[in-house]
Design a protein around this nucleic acid. Structure first.
Length: 424
RNA sequence: GUGGUUGUAGCUCAGUUGGUUAGAGCGUCGGCUUGUGGUGCCGAAGGUCGCGGGUUCGAGACCCGUCAGCCACCCCA
């Protein structure tokens, strides 16, 4: 049996998010939810586990599926897996329920991948994402990128690069694959042990970060040259749409991304403030055949995922989205142990004010210290003398205004009025 | 999964060529006569030196293993 100290802690590569840091999560999630709803997307909630096959369909050469999945057999003998990525469950839900298209949904969900953890790379990480199922209009590609791009702007991020590319359709990819494979074979010496990987999935080598391959990669044949007329036209319209909205992008010919299901438009948003290898804060693309591959109707689709942990690292690096200051309005201080404290506190809270107190019969001094630490705007003091006269004392904790008295029955309304007048 | 690096109180870190009861700052708690916070002064709690083994008369310091964080590859958000 392992010792408590080894086991009474979050599993490797997984995080606890404590207050006050967690307040930033509320902030990020709320902004995304509000923006997505404004764009006409509705929240989709799917189970945290799905049948193994749902993810297996994502692709046989997709690493996330092949060697990073947390899968298990449940008590009914079903093979299930913790969700390793966000798109497959959405498409599965589409295939199952057949909602009218275009089906526009957003989601917030944890993903699980058993990889080697690092800062910005966790075994459980949370993604905010959006998908549009059942339409291949390039305007949708533009909209989905705009949804994500503008979200980063709303968070205050400015050092973000948008990389776009087109993977083409199945036929172009097949042709390109062969060309690329021939090219890798010509560089077999340089590839060495990685030649096996190159044979299995020639595209995967393209976005390698190895410096000794840089020259070889730059000279490699480019996918763009092999695009069909239809694919090229689609990609062209996406670029025009982005330009029309003033969204700055770069074409990244070697951007191929790690999921087999991608076709046509793919994109990635990289934070320039993160110099680590984990600088991709969001990414996605088209997957025009996935619904069919899951046994559903033809439903060309596009979507993206954005990792919350990385997003927050990028915010830290840019010095934006600080931990929000406390929102506490009032701190109730009980100087004489009167029974009214709980009642007064309840009144304030029920009237919509954020209010708190100290516990355990602390001394006056300690209660004021706690009030100061809490960041509350006012201390509402119940003393023997005041209670006798039917009033409470109000002290301003964030300014030098003199302390005043307010009638006991009016205190909630009194604080509400002042809170609404000057919300600081 | 591969390679590298780090690991001392809740947090950030000291800890001299291995040598007695392991330190500081911040934070927490308490006190400075019990009705007024943020500053000040005093005090306290809090550490199996990540864990296990080894070398040694003696290990927080050295060696091996292991776990965890971090970095690169890989992959990706």
């Amino acid at each position: 049996m392992p010792a408590d100290r080894d086991v009474m802690r979050a599993p490797k590569g997984m995080l606890d998010v404590l207050p006050p840091e967690s307040a930033r999560w509320i902030d990020v999630i709320t902004r995304f939810a509000s923006r997505a709803e404004r764009f006409g997307y509705g929240l989709l909630l799917t189970p945290i586990v799905d049948h193994y096959e749902v993810f297996a369909r994502v692709g046989a050469t997709t690493d996330v599926v092949r060697k990073q999945m947390y899968d298990f057999v449940d008590r009914g003998g079903r093979r299930l897996a913790l969700r390793p990525e966000g798109t497959a469950p959405v498409v599965r839900a589409y295939v199952q329920h057949r909602p009218p298209t275009p089906w526009k949904v957003w989601y917030l969900a944890p993903n699980f991948r058993a990889e080697q953890p690092q800062a910005g790379r966790y075994r459980q990480h949370w993604q905010l994402g959006a998908e549009v199922i059942g339409i291949d209009d390039p305007d949708v590609d533009v909209e989905i990128i705009e949804l994500l791009w503008g979200f980063y702007g709303e968070l205050g991020l400015s050092d973000v690069r948008l990389l776009v590319n087109s993977m083409g359709d199945a036929e172009t990819r097949g042709r390109y694959r062969e060309v690329l494979l021939a090219y890798w074979r010509a560089h077999e010496t340089l590839l060495g042990a990685e030649m096996e990987r190159a044979e299995a999935n020639p595209l995967r080598i393209l976005d390698s970060k190895r410096s000794d391959w840089l020259d070889m990669l730059e000279r490699a044949p480019q996918l763009g040259e092999y695009l069909s007329d239809a694919s090229a036209a689609h990609f062209e319209r996406v670029q025009e749409g982005l330009q029309a909205l003033g969204i700055a992008f770069e074409i990244a010919p070697r951007l191929v991304r790690g999921f087999d299901y991608y076709t046509s438009t793919v994109f990635e948003l990289a934070s320039g403030a993160l110099d680590a290898a984990q600088n991709a804060i969001g990414g996605g693309g088209r997957y025009d055949r996935l619904a069919q591959e899951m046994g559903g109707p033809a439903a060309p689709s596009i979507g993206f995922g954005s990792g919350i942990e990385r997003l927050l690292l990028a915010c830290d690096a840019e010095g934006v989205l600080p931990v929000p200051a406390t929102q506490l309005d009032a701190f109730v201080i009980d100087l004489v142990g009167v029974a009214d404290t709980a009642r007064l506190l309840a009144e304030l809270r029920e009237s919509g004010l954020a209010a708190d107190r100290a516990y355990g019969g602390r001394s006056t001094k300690k209660q004021f210290a706690a009030a100061g630490r809490s960041g509350a705007r006012w201390a509402v003091i119940i003393g023997a003398d005041e209670a006798k006269r039917g009033v409470v004392a109000v002290k301003f904790l964030r300014s030098e205004q003199p302390q005043c008295e307010v009638r006991r029955e009016e205190i909630a309304a009194w604080l509400r009025t002042r809170k609404d007048e000057a919300p600081t």
